[in-house]
Structure formats: structure tokens, C-alpha cells
């Protein structure tokens, strides 16, 4: 079992503090859902874990099995077992999807022990079939001209090929049609198990209908303000966030600005 521990995390972007002391612990074999209103720092958390160059961690720690993640370069974090399915994946012209995924797999292997081309192609074909992706997508340039939904599916393809210990899925359900949502959920469920833990950032219960979370956390104002089981997500779906705000005495900053 592996554990990802985030303690008292403070993160700024362009000198604006977004995360203000966030705590979260995830084990493999667990699925955690993170929900919360727009702009409360969910993507910031994901980016800070992965090491996005624009996000500055000013306080706190992130550790995988006791290893200090914050000292690692982005690629080292990936090799330590972290994976982020991004809300807005980059497009890279001239680099085929297949070449990229193969490089990513080989980056985890010793020189001289690269995955054989045949084995790679077999696995890629199989996984693309599983995700109901057109084989032609393998030879397309990485995310270039992909539709929103195709990009998300492609993130899951990479996830399944790379097999990380911890995946953070940032709104993997946004922009997906119903069938695509089922396919993506099928991919994530396929990964579930002993060696895999997952943080799914989402706004909607519908993803969680397919991927039942073990834990649900609510983020507001740069912190986790409430945690619970799957029933918490269901209540949020039904009632929204106001009850939590009232319960915790959180002022709606946006509303205040509007009134002023």
C-alpha cells in the first residue's frame, strides 16, 4: 500500500494565495472525490501536487510514502507514481499520440529495457479498444484538434497505459456525453484496486454514480471544509453548497463584492 499525504498546504499563484492550509490523505485502493464551488482551488491543488511551474508552494508538505514530493521535478513526481489528468490538456503538434505514450512508458524503464514495439502496439490497441477510441487516434498529433471529450478520453488512455499509483482527475467528466462518461468511468474502475488510488475532482454526482467514491471532500476558500462518504456528494447534488456555508459560517466573498 502507498500513501499520499498533504499537510497544511499553502499555494500562491502570482502572489495571490489560493490554497490556505489544506490537509488530505489518500491511500491506494481508495477513491476520493473532491467537490466545491468554482474558483475554490481544486485545480490549484491538482497543479501543486504535480508541480506546475506557475504555482508556488509557500508552506506545508506533500509526501508519497514519506518521500518529499515538493523537492521533486515534475518528471520525478510522475515516476514516483503521480498522474494528473488535466482539466485542459496541452496540444503538441508533430508528436503522435503513440510515440508520446511509448516515450512515457520507456521513461519509467531502464535504458536497454525499453518496451518492445510489438508489445506496446498490442497494449495500446487493446486499451484503445477498451476505451472505444478510433485506432486512428494513435497516429494523430497529441491532443491536436481533439474535441473536448476526445481529450478527456485520451487522458484516460494515458492513465491506463502508464498505470500510476495515484491519479488526480481534474473534471474528467466535463464535456463528456453520456456514453463517453460511461466509457471513461469504465476505464477508471478498471484501474481500481490494490495498487491504485484516485482523487476525482468533479462538480456532479453523475460521475460518482459510475465511480463510487470511498470518501468525498468539499473544498471552499482554499481548504477542505467538510469530508464524508458517498452520501455527502448526493446531498450536495440535491441541495448545493449553501447549507455547508451556513453550517461553517462561510461568507460568500463573491456575493459580498457584488453587493458593494
Amino acid at each position: 500500500m502507498s500513501t499520499l499525504v498533504i499537510k497544511d498546504l499553502h499555494v500562491s499563484i502570482e502572489d495571490k494565495e489560493i490554497l490556505k492550509g489544506l490537509n488530505l490523505t489518500i491511500n491506494t485502493n481508495e477513491v476520493h472525490a473532491i467537490m466545491g464551488p468554482n474558483g475554490t482551488g481544486k485545480s490549484t491543488l491538482a497543479s501543486a501536487i504535480m508541480g506546475h511551474p506557475k504555482y508556488e508552494v509557500t508552506q506545508g508538505t506533500i509526501e508519497i510514502d514519506g518521500e518529499n514530493v515538493l523537492e521533486m521535478e515534475v518528471d520525478e513526481r510522475a515516476k514516483a507514481g503521480l498522474f494528473l489528468a488535466m482539466q485542459y490538456p496541452s496540444e503538441i503538434s508533430g508528436v503522435t499520440n503513440a510515440d508520446f505514450v511509448r516515450s512515457a512508458i520507456n521513461a519509467r524503464r531502464e535504458e536497454g529495457d525499453e518496451i518492445s514495439l510489438m508489445k506496446f502496439i498490442r497494449e495500446l490497441d487493446k486499451t484503445m479498444d477498451f476505451l472505444e477510441m478510433d485506432q486512428e487516434m494513435a497516429q494523430r498529433y497529441l491532443n491536436e484538434g481533439f474535441s473536448g471529450g476526445e481529450k478527456k478520453r485520451n487522458e484516460i488512455l494515458q492513465l491506463m497505459m502508464i498505470k500510476p499509483k495515484f491519479a488526480i482527475l481534474d473534471e474528467i467528466d466535463s464535456g463528456l456525453d453520456i456514453d463517453a462518461l460511461k466509457v471513461v468511468a469504465k476505464g477508471i474502475n478498471e484501474m481500481r484496486g490494490e495498487g491504485f488510488g484516485c482523487i476525482a475532482i468533479t462538480h456532479y454526482q453523475r460521475l460518482l454514480n459510475y465511480i463510487t467514491p470511498d470518501h468525498v471532500h468539499v473544498m471552499m476558500q482554499g481548504r477542505v471544509v467538510k469530508s464524508g462518504g458517498p452520501e455527502l456528494a448526493q446531498r450536495l447534488e440535491a441541495e448545493g453548497y449553501d447549507w455547508i456555508k451556513q453550517e461553517l459560517g462561510i461568507e460568500d466573498t463573491d456575493a459580498v463584492t457584488e453587493e458593494a
Binding site: 518528471d75 510522475a78 494528473l84 496541452s90 503538441i92 503538434s93 508533430g94 508520446f100 516515450s103
Partner: peptide, 29 residues
Amino acid sequence: DPIQLYYLMSRGLSKAEAERLVIHGFLAP
């Protein structure tokens, strides 16, 4: 583009390898 490099590196590619891919991609046409 540093964001492109970040994306590639987030999959485990070293910075040098990520740059190499971006450059080859750039010259691919």
C-alpha cells in the same frame, strides 16, 4: 512553451526528452 513541457514531463518524460519531442514536433511538417 513551458506549459507544453509541464504536460509532457507530468507523464514522466525528462525535461530534455520533452524538449526533444516538442522540437521534433515543430519540425515535423
